[in-house]
């Protein structure tokens, strides 16, 4: 294909991606370098019968004008990145100097908003992802052994939690496990403990968010592995059986290695999706116990009437850097494959 034709074909999609994905990333960076204007103050002397006193008042008009002229705010350099709400270098240094044990230090760090969200996001990603991979493979093997008529039903049922809107899916689960819901109330009755509630306990909330994560993404890994199982060569399985391999051995030694490329694909997708965990926190009203990186950005932008663009921008950029780091192994491998093919 000629360069010129290629250009015209790719133009619409490329301009959409540059304008609404690449430029916003630049914009996020620019925003993070500025902070909102301080209010313009005027000092005026009000003189009364007992002499003059200087009073400071806020010049609303001038403030408004300044905000209009420079919507980004005033230049602040990289300060936003290092303040208490983000990387908090100073606070960490202080915590390191003042705390006598690792535990105490960690407690201090965990109370900083960015690290708090980072801890939850990473924990969520690295607990949900392996669980989903293993359970997905186990269920795929199980479904593969089912009679043909049942396979369709199994796949249909499994697709529901995956395709349902995340916000809606998490609400459905929330209504069941909440203190008044069928599972929540029954558990309270069994343990005879009315304080046993999702809203009152951080470990319970984390567990439930991860249960939702597994429920929601398991179908993806299950269906991908199930499709992969259809391509396992019969001959190899037959040969393994003749050589005396048990079912379990041929699963671990033949089937799983055959699925390995799929495993890395599914892992990549799962990490990408789990890292942006956001909707369940909104649905579960979990913000008192668990906040993710996406949620704190959302919260900054939601700041009523006066969104904290700088803060949201800084967190966004840190998040983007983390995403790229997480994806690095895959990107490097794809690039190697490509250059090998090219030679």
């Amino acid at each position: 294909m000629k360069h010129r034709t290629f250009f015209w074909f790719i133009l619409p999609t490329l301009s959409a991606m540059i304008l609404f994905i690449a430029l916003p990333i630049v914009s996020v960076f620019v925003q993070s370098l500025f902070v909102a204007h301080e209010q313009v103050q005027v000092v005026s002397e009000s003189c009364g019968p007992f002499g003059c006193t200087p009073t400071t008042s806020i010049d609303l008009e001038a403030t408004e004008k300044l905000r209009e002229e420079q919507p980004l705010g005033r230049f602040n350099g990289l300060n936003t990145y290092f303040n208490r709400s983000h990387l908090a270098i100073a606070d960490i240094g202080e915590a390191w100097a003042n705390s006598d044990s690792m535990g105490a230090f960690w407690n201090e760090v965990y109370n900083l908003p960015f690290y708090n969200a980072l801890t939850f996001t990473l924990t969520y990603t690295f607990i949900v992802t392996p669980l989903v991979l293993m359970l997905g493979l186990a269920i795929a093997v199980g479904v593969n052994n089912l009679p043909r008529a049942l396979k369709g039903v199994a796949i249909f049922t499994s697709l529901l939690p995956f395709l349902v809107t995340p916000l809606v899916g998490s609400l459905i689960l929330f209504w069941m496990v909440d203190g008044d819901g069928v599972i929540g109330a029954t558990l309270q009755n069994i343990f005879n403990d009315s304080s046993l509630s999702l809203k009152g306990s951080t470990p319970l909330m984390w567990t439930m968010l991860m249960v939702y994560g597994v429920w929601h993404t398991l179908p993806f890994s299950f269906i991908t592995f199930y499709a992969g199982l259809q391509t396992v060569p019969e001959d190899t399985l037959e040969a393994a059986k003749i050589d005396g391999a048990s079912k379990w051995q041929s699963l671990i030694l033949v089937t799983v290695p055959h699925l390995m490329p799929l495993v890395s694909f599914v892992t990549l997708m799962l990490i990408m999706d789990n890292f942006r965990v956001f909707e369940p926190i909104v649905s579960f009203s979990a913000e008192a116990h668990a906040r993710s990186l996406s949620w704190i950005i959302f919260n900054d932008l939601r700041e009523s009437g006066n969104p904290l663009y700088a803060s949201a921008g800084a967190t966004s950029l840190l998040t983007i850097i983390l995403v790229v780091i997480l994806m690095m192994p895959v990107l490097v491998r794809t690039w190697r494959d490509f250059t090998r093919k090219a030679h």
């Binding site: 916003p24 996020v28 996406s294 932008l301 983007i320």
Partner: peptide
């Protein structure tokens, strides 16, 4: 490759770039 990286961006980070 760029599309793959773009696919991984959490949507809220992009939204924070548009809003202003």
């Amino acid at each position: 490759m760029a599309a793959l990286v773009f696919r991984a961006m959490p949507h809220i980070t992009l939204v924070s770039g548009y809003l202003l």
